[in-house]
Computed example of a mutant assay.
Amino acid sequence: MRLPGVYRAADDTALLANVMRQGEYARGRRVLDIGCGTGALAIEAVRAGAASVTAVDLSLRSAAATWLNARVHRAPVDVRRGDLFEPVRGERFDLLLANPPYVPAPTSLLPRHRIARCWDAGIDGRQVLDRICLGSADALSSGGTVLIVQSEVCDERATLVRLEGAGIRSQVVARFRVPFGPVMRTRTALVEGRGLLKSGRREEELVVVEGCRD
């Protein structure tokens, strides 16, 4: 179920869910889904054997959609509304899941009340990604893991560097090439002009970054 203005689960969601399932990252663990959208990842974490699942989103509609979908699928998900880690400040989790906005936008101003909030992420696509990298260490338990899905367009190396700088060992664990979606097709000239993607490309590589806290 997807309310108007809520991000529709797409290839990036499926890739992250597949990595979580195949690696058995969620089994027996306390899971936090950051930016939950429809709740697809949170529900998959429950199905993958998580001990508990908490889902957070700044959007009221997304929080409502996750709450509704979790109940339709009889998945015990604790849904909270707020900005990234704020609703769970002081709590620790064994697994963080993040499919944040990562599409480069015309300006650095992030939309608050339009569907574009689901993908617009500033000039280089990293405004939300960087905040997640910096905040993950405080939300992870010792030995905990963060899984982040993003596009190559917003520089996977920067994600690795940010996580390492926060004390989280990191690596890319999955790659998947997909054709440009509707939003990226409208931003082709923009990302090419900024040197974020080679001219003529009409597909992008999605990557899943794994970070582990000692």
Rank of each mutant, 00 (worst) to 15 (best):
L16E: 04
L147Q: 06
T66C: 15
S52I: 02
Q150T: 13
D94P: 01
R177C: 07
S52K: 10
G181A: 11
R80Y: 02
C36A: 15
E192M: 08
R185F: 05
P182H: 12
R213M: 11
D138G: 14
S52R: 13
A116H: 12
A14F: 12
V191Y: 06
M1I: 11
F180K: 12
A75G: 03
D138S: 15
P106C: 00
A51R: 15
A9M: 07
V77L: 01
Y7N: 07
N18F: 00
V178C: 04
P76G: 07
R30T: 12
A40P: 02
A9K: 07
D83H: 13
V146N: 03
R126C: 00
D57W: 09
A116P: 01
P104M: 08
Q22R: 14
G122R: 08
G143I: 03
C36R: 01
R185S: 14
Q171I: 06
P104A: 10
L97K: 06
S59M: 03
L110F: 06
P100S: 07
V6N: 09
V173Y: 08
R92A: 12
D155G: 04
R92S: 14
A45T: 06
M1G: 13
E156T: 15
L147E: 05
I123Q: 05
R202M: 11
I132R: 03
I34W: 03
R126N: 02
L58H: 09
V161Y: 05
A10W: 07
Y102H: 13
G200Y: 12
P76W: 06
L60F: 12
A26Q: 09
K198I: 06
G211N: 07
H113T: 13
I115K: 04
P106E: 14
D11V: 06
R131W: 08
Y102N: 09
A65H: 01
L163I: 09
L97N: 08
G122C: 10
R71T: 02
R81Y: 02
S62W: 03
T54V: 15
L134W: 12
A166F: 04
D124C: 00
R81F: 03
V6T: 08
E91P: 01
E91L: 14
R2P: 00
R213G: 00
F85V: 07
R194M: 11
A40R: 08
C154H: 04
V149Y: 09
E86W: 08
V6Q: 07
G135P: 12
V46C: 14
P182E: 14
V183K: 11
W67Y: 13
V72I: 15
R112Q: 14
A75M: 03
T13I: 05
G165D: 06
A98C: 14
A17M: 06
P111F: 06
C212W: 07
T54D: 05
V53Y: 04
W67V: 00
R187K: 14
A116G: 05
V209C: 09
R213N: 02
L96I: 10
V103N: 08
R89D: 11
A158I: 01
I43P: 02
G5S: 05
R89F: 05
L109I: 12
V153G: 04
L163N: 09
S62A: 15
L84G: 10
A55N: 03
V53F: 05
